[in-house]
């Protein structure tokens, strides 16, 4: 009897929670709340993105380029199941993803990625039409 009463009492809260979930989904489309911080540099011929994903499993890192958008996704392990007492839980675990729109077209076939010390470096050469060209003046 007590159990049923509790369930009924919580029903409106359940509705509110679903609404909140939906709201946060709109604000943070990145999955479990981890927005991998990145830096982006541009030279005449390429972009270089460096994404800080400390602890991400290199086997599960996924990098894709679609048009001029770079997509990065991966997984990070959290505390193990046998953790009996959890004192501090500040890290984000689970699936994460991030998309970055680049200001110019890139050559998707020539994109290179390198993972070291928890930093994923992605080099994206610009598409030929996006590189600065020198125009010879005909005399």
């Amino acid at each position: 009897m007590m159990f049923l009463t509790q369930r009924d009492g919580l029903a409106p809260l359940g509705w509110l929670r679903d609404e909140m979930d939906r709201l946060f989904e709109c604000v943070t489309p990145q999955g479990d709340g981890f927005v991998a911080p990145l830096t982006l540099h541009e030279t005449e011929s390429a972009f270089e993105a460096r994404i800080a994903v400390a602890g991400a499993d290199p086997e599960k890192l996924e990098i894709g380029v679609e048009g001029n958008v770079l997509h990065v996704a991966g997984e990070r392990e959290g505390m193990p199941d046998d953790a009996q007492r959890r004192f501090t839980a500040e890290r984000f675990a689970g699936h994460f993803e991030r998309a970055l729109e680049l200001p110019a077209a890139v050559a998707a076939d020539e994109v290179q990625a390198h993972y070291r010390d928890g930093i994923l470096t992605v080099t994206l050469p610009k598409a030929a039409e996006a590189r600065p060209r020198r125009i010879t003046v005909q005399v």
Binding site: V53, A54, G55, T88, E90
Partner: peptide, 22 residues
């Protein structure tokens, strides 16, 4: 740095994020 700290019967464990640190 961000950290997780937990215990098992045998030990305490810390997982600390240090991106870019060699």
């Amino acid at each position: 740095p961000r950290a997780d700290v937990w215990e098992t019967a045998e030990a305490a464990h810390l997982a600390i994020e240090l991106p870019g640190v060699p």
